[in-house]
């Protein structure tokens, strides 16, 4: 009996991500969800600038590589041409909530029928550990070496909660991948978002609290512990908006 197998949608290219990074898990969850929904031949991904910039090497579906922060606009354009395709953009916190916040908010406000997978690890990974919009107070980064001080560096943004104030989004949930139960919950959320997109319900947004062992200078295990002990209390998990529930 096969208990676990690699999804068909993923290539055999070895991942370039650091040991303990959450991208690999989320890639699998996205691929599995698409596969289970029978959408492997009808999915288009839009990749960001950030650690996942080479994500197109790992997915077999058609992909576009977007300019930094512009994936929601690119997805908007793609979806207008292929309204029946499953379109997802996969973006980090710098991409989605800093340089691309405007595009994110307006795609959400328009209720564009695609899904953003938002990887929130609270740091700029690819460029070497600079402060992100989601870096929590007191957390050290290479552009706030004594830890984020709101007086100097401003305050972190709760992106999912902020988007939930808009009318456009249909489903917003925050998940994490710090333990198997949370990974299973994340999978359910991603799959639900895709299902709602296929049903043309509107904008869906899944925020994944992720780890970054390299830039937090932690072992992979301690990096997961950081998510559990520091990130989750600050960024609570769960469904933040679900208009399909309201319909019932």
């Amino acid at each position: 009996m096969i208990v676990q197998k690699k999804p068909q949608l993923l290539t055999d290219t070895p991942l370039h991500y650091c040991p303990g990074c959450t991208h690999g898990i989320v890639h699998r969850l996205v691929a599995e969800s698409i596969e289970e929904l029978g959408m492997c031949d009808n999915a288009i991904g839009v990749m960001p600038v950030g650690c996942a910039v080479f994500g197109y090497n790992y997915f077999k579906c058609d992909m576009l590589q977007a300019a930094h922060g512009r994936a929601p606009s690119v997805s908007t354009g793609v979806k207008r041409v292929h309204p029946d395709a499953l379109v997802f953009s996969y973006q980090g916190d710098g991409d989605c909530s800093s340089i691309g916040m405007c595009e994110t908010v307006h795609a959400a406000a328009r209720g564009e029928n695609f899904t953003i997978i938002f990887i929130n690890n609270g740091i700029y990974g690819m460029t070497g550990g600079q402060m992100a919009p989601t870096t929590m107070e007191g957390v050290k980064a290479t552009t706030c070496i004594y830890g984020r001080d709101p007086k100097i560096n401003g305050n972190p943004i709760h992106v999912a909660e902020m988007l939930a104030t808009l009318t456009g989004p249909c489903y917003i949930e925050r998940v994490a991948c710090d333990n198997p139960a949370h990974v299973n919950a994340a999978k359910k959320a991603i799959k639900k978002a895709f299902e709602l997109q296929i049903a043309k319900k509107g904008f869906t947004f899944i925020e994944v609290l992720a780890s970054c062992p390299s830039n937090y200078h932690l072992t992979p295990l301690d990096a997961q512990k950081f998510v559990t002990e520091r990130a989750i209390p600050f960024y609570p998990l769960g469904v933040i908006k679900d208009t399909t529930k309201e319909e019932k």
Partner: peptide
């Protein structure tokens, strides 16, 4: 929402 976004929508639609 901006010219920046508009040209990237073009990138998406034309790329598709």
């Amino acid at each position: 929402e901006s010219e920046v976004s508009a040209i990237n929508m073009v990138y998406g639609a034309a790329g598709a």
